[in-house]
Design a binder for these strands. Sequence first.
DNA 1: TGGTCATGCGTACACCGTACACAAAAGGGT
DNA 2: ACCCTTTTGTGTACGGTGTACGCATGACCA
Lengths: 192, 192
Amino acid sequence: MTKNRILSAAKAVLESAGFEGLTIRRVAQRAGLSPMALYRHFKNKDELLNALMQDGISAWEAIVRGIRAQDPVKWLEALMEAYLDFALKQPHRFDAAFFLPAPAARQFPDDFAAGRSPAIALVMARIDQAKADGRFRDEPTLGIAVALAAYGQGFVSMQRARRFASDQQFKALYHAAQRQFLDSLKPSGKSE
Amino acid sequence: MTKNRILSAAKAVLESAGFEGLTIRRVAQRAGLSPMALYRHFKNKDELLNALMQDGISAWEAIVRGIRAQDPVKWLEALMEAYLDFALKQPHRFDAAFFLPAPAARQFPDDFAAGRSPAIALVMARIDQAKADGRFRDEPTLGIAVALAAYGQGFVSMQRARRFASDQQFKALYHAAQRQFLDSLKPSGKSE
DNA sequence: TGGTCATGCGTACACCGTACACAAAAGGGT
DNA sequence: ACCCTTTTGTGTACGGTGTACGCATGACCA
């Protein structure tokens, strides 16, 4: 389908030129179409961006599904590592997934609580598991999941805004916060 | 100075039209100048945005300096409340302060650790105080400060990306995370 | 064959940031 | 008072953007 060709072209342009360089004309050329042809398949640029967001989210969900760790806490550690990796290795795709305004649905807490976001559902399942195993305190699962998401998004947002002197500093502080966060979920006074 | 008049015009345009509507032509008109006159005072649009960032940061620092709570933990609670308020009541100014890419300096950890950011310096002083009073565990102060910043920025970033169904949900989850975060800093097994 | 509908294209418009050349004004030294 | 230099403002123009509109082309079905 032509629509998919356009989407592939858009992904390619985004990857090579970023959001600044993502223009209708450029995408059209890459897809071998005239600029206006694109509008037969997407109502406007926002709708194209929307499709890119969906693509980014799918990519992220595939990553989350691919995490193999058995232990729930280790799984969550791997999750945060994968998140960092996604943000640094595929920055534009990451931004499409996490920073573009959602048009509808995909909103906390309802849609996520209802399992409409597979990735969050997986995360919440692991949190529940850790709680059942006595590894986490009995905080609300959704609250933990949201806090985790905010943590990650906050760090990346600060990195995007050039708030860290280097990627090394960014990673170091991210990891420190990750450790502190997961530790804080343990039952009082307990350590492994 | 004309430069200040332009800056005021830019702030007014930003407030009423957002970043989307912030154009050179519009700012110039608001300042009673021709568009090109503006370039005598700012090298380009980025430099103007930079000035807006500085303005937003100053506003935030004034807010932080205005927090009156004595108790360091209560002070930090008030800080997070003020942060939320700033983000919701002056969204564009907030975004200028926290989301625009920093051009240089103003970067973790060096510039903040060196006291080059008054707001963070104040925050770190309160964290140190809480640690000295035995109210916080002995985690690295800078790490706590960065985590706090990331937390807030993450929540606001998610709200900007329309990840919350409503401002009520946003506030509720923000407050829950805030409580959980501050609790997690207490010495093991202790509660007030 | 003819008619209908989806798809693509060329042109055009309003807007954007800003380079360039020029005009006006504002000091400053004699 | 004069001239000269530097600063400040302006008008025009260029290449870029998203996209409205009308027309051409093709596919498909009666």
